[in-house]
Amino acid sequence: METALIKVKRQDDPEDLPYWELFEVQLEPGMSVARAIEVVRENPMTADGNRTAPVAHECSCMEGLCGACAMLINGKARLACSTLVDEFDGPITLEPLAKFPLVRDLCVDRSRIMEALARSECWIPLDGLHVAGCIPVYSQREQMKTSVFSDCISCGCCSEACPQVNGRSAFAGAFIFSHIMALNAHPLGLQSRDPRLALLGGRGGVADCAGAENCESVCPRGIPLAAAVARLQWEVALNSIRRYFWG
């Protein structure tokens, strides 16, 4: 029976030191990395036959839509559920995302994604949940152009790949641009656009992006993040000019 070797970077808790463990997994047809981790979890035995604790990891939908299983697979930020084991020849290295505080093994604390969305006011202020009686008209062309920016699953892969996301910067990652692009293009979101752009012009905003464009190449949803950054940098600049002349 064919097997795959999986090398996992483990760490019992945030204060502890990391260590590596090697696992040998029997291949199943079309096996994903997430499934391989599950197999290890069911029978946590290292390749040299030692019992160990099950590998802690996150996963939910297993369809690439919830973003829970983002991790470093052979050094690249990817979703474990949508990465096939037989894509790789040698052993597969799994590490937790390094830009987020570690919880345990492959689990990290991604609450700063939610905090960044809250800081940038990524919502449309509503009058209430009642039926207002009219659906905002949204041009087909604009909706089709913007649709892809609504697809962000907040997995954190873009943050991981970004050299600007680090302990010294307030920048959380390019996902924020995707959310804001979608909101700003929306007919109701347009009304709350300017305050959002003003926030984006401040600390941790568009100016923090140095244009490495790594985010776009790792985004599991294929969101054109580089285009989003360029567009928003332009809009932030326009907005500050507008504010200067019109208040």
Partner: peptide
């Protein structure tokens, strides 16, 4: 309608 007002980009 409510979802559309919240920002869901319906086709």
């Amino acid at each position: 309608e409510l979802l559309a007002r919240m920002g869901v980009g319906f086709d």
